[in-house]
Structure formats: C-alpha cells, structure tokens
Design a protein around this nucleic acid. Sequence first.
DNA 1: ATCATTTCTTAACTTAAGTGAACGAATTTT
DNA 2: AAAATTCGTTCACTTAAGTTAAGAAATGAT
Lengths: 193, 193
Amino acid sequence: MQDILFDFISKYISLTEDEKNAILSLDIFRSVKKGTILLKEGQKSRDCYFVLKGCIRKYYIIDGEEKTTAFFTEMEELTPHCVINNAPSEYFISCVEDTILTVANPDMGVEIFTKFPKFEIMCRILSGELLAKQQIDFDEFKTSSPEQRYLNLLQNRPDLIQRVPQHQLASFLGIKPQSLSRLRARILEKSKE
Amino acid sequence: MQDILFDFISKYISLTEDEKNAILSLDIFRSVKKGTILLKEGQKSRDCYFVLKGCIRKYYIIDGEEKTTAFFTEMEELTPHCVINNAPSEYFISCVEDTILTVANPDMGVEIFTKFPKFEIMCRILSGELLAKQQIDFDEFKTSSPEQRYLNLLQNRPDLIQRVPQHQLASFLGIKPQSLSRLRARILEKSKE
DNA sequence: ATCATTTCTTAACTTAAGTGAACGAATTTT
DNA sequence: AAAATTCGTTCACTTAAGTTAAGAAATGAT
C-alpha cells in the first residue's frame, strides 16, 4: 500500500532506502470509514491529505446548504487552506467512500525538508503542476455552461459520476440537484433524436 | 522600478547584493503598450510574467468569441500553461493597459536555481500560496451566482471594474455583456428602494 | 424486516441569463 | 475632422436554472 505512495513520489524524485524509511517512520497511513469528517468548519488543523484509495470531498455550508466544491480521489493531494494561513477552516472535508490516505503536517515536514532537501524540489514541482491543473479547470468552468460542464465531466472523470451522490455532483457543477436531473433528461432526449 | 520586484521577493527570502545582481544581469524588465499581445493561441512560449505595474489579461477564443478568464495586476505572477506542459498555448495573453513587467523563463531559472537554492524555497512557498488563493477563488466562483460574483468583485477588486472594459469583465464573471449591464441595473434598482 | 431518512426525479411556476437587434457614446483609423 | 469600428446599454423574446412541492427509490437504522 505504501508502494502507491512511493510510486507516486518516484515520478518526481528518486528515493533512497534511507529516505523511504524516514517517511515510513512518520507513520502517516490512515484508513477512514465512509462518512467520516476529517475537518470541520472553524477547526484549526495542520493536516494535509493524500488519497491512496477512495474519495474525499470538500464542502462549505452556506445558509444551511452544503456546497461541494471539490473531490479528491486516488493520487490526489489536498492541503487545506487553514493549514496555509493557520486560521480556522472555512469548509468541511469528509469521506465519500471508505478511504485510505496519508495524513501529514508541515511540522513533520520541517524535519524531512532539512534532512532531505530533495523534497523541496518535489514540492515545488508538485504545487506548480497542481496550480496549472487547477487553472485549467477553473478556466474550463468559467467558459462553459452547466450542461457542457456535465458533458466534460462525463469525458474526463466518468468515475466521479458513478461514485458520488448526485446532489453533491450538482453543487460541484455549480447548480441545484433538480437542475442536474433535468439537464440529464435533456441530454438523453437530445441523444434519442 | 526593480525595487518593486525586490520588495516582493523579500517577503519570501532575503537577497544578498550578489543575488540581486544575478537577477538584474538577466535583463528581464519589459515595458509593453496597451493592446500588445504577449502570447497567442498555438504558440509555444517559455515566458513567464510578473506584473510590476499595469494589467494583463488571459483569454480564450471559443467559437470566435473571446472568453476572458483572468486578469493579472500589480504583484501578480502568470506562468502560462504552455510553459509547464511545453505544448502550444490554448489561450492568449494581452495587455489591458500600458504595463511594466518582468519576463523570465525556466531556462534562465536553471542557472539561478543551481547557483542560489534559495529560489527553490521561494518558488515552493509562492506556488503554494497561489494554489491556495486560486482554490479559494474557484470555490467562491462555484458557490455564488453571477450577481454575487459581481458584488464580491466590487468588494475585493474594485479597481478591476474601473480599469477593465465591461465585456471583458462580463466573461470573467461567466456571463454575457448584456447580462452584466442588466445585472448592474438590477442592483441599482434594488439600492433605490 | 420494517420504519425512517435521505436521495433522486418530475412537474409547475418564477427568476435570471442567453440571443438578436437597435441605438447612442466612445474610441480608433484614415 | 470625418468615417468607421468598437463598446455599453436597452428591449423583446427564448432558454435554462432556481424554487417549491410531491412522490418514488434507495439507503440506513432499529
């Protein structure tokens, strides 16, 4: 299971056995049940997540309504905003499925960064890549209609549509669950013609 | 003028005179006229921009229509996607105003990174921060209506509304220029009551 | 297995954004 | 300075999303 993590890391830097052991000694692997809330609004956490298997979800509660803004599945990393600005979290993080993930915090990182400067390099590359991906996603969202967004999702992350409840998907697409139902019916209608 | 850049950098790392000179020797300062196109769709550029004064804009042309997805003003940095994936650009970058910026590319960076590892640290922090900011912006966009987005913009970046043409603002907000006009009229109407 | 709750869909109605066109104002070109 | 283009607003009309409500289906709890 740790191999998933090391395979991932090896895409960016090569690790010696020493370095691998240093990581393992941190004891960062966690297995969490579906529905578990990893982070609550208002909470000050230092934990960052990397999903090895499963799916976690980030959502706000605005006027009593859940607004899901992101899903993180295999090989995806989530550094909550509250970790960066060291303020209470504006949102929740919970498990959509039974999930295996690593939990690490920057305080553990300091050790690692000083012992193995390589990690600095990986972090730069990784957050650069994430930033780029995020920008493209944002652009795509801005330049398309809800229907196009749904069709894009169908193309690019068909798994999400299967594994995630519709009402969470809807707010992820920026619409209400009823609108998603309607929109899907509309698409089906069109494809019949 | 270079001081603006050094002041910015000093928020992340402290620079020696040597390091400052190394940067200056790269000759990265450029002054560009309003309307200049810095990057075109299909082009393979290696240039990254940091705005010292003025405003640049990123936009797609989709079905013959301009779709503006971002503005970059003083102290903001833009690393085009094509620089990261080394593929032809999907979008354009042009100057909204007469602008002073730095133009740097990763090839120049390699020198600097090896000579001064500090920059590695700055880049990690900076792209981490950008990523966090970008995520918050994206969340805010997803969870709000066009009208709320406009009101948020009025709060958070009132300057943009002044310095940028309305039709560019509209697509930045994810709507058509006519809808922006209407929406503003609606808000005015409400405030009268 | 039954009951309760949550989730998904459908429908009717309301509200807001998209579309196409027109017009004056501002800006750019010649 | 005049002509041409671009820009911003308004209008009437169309389309799609929000809202409220209801019922069926699926899920979870006892």
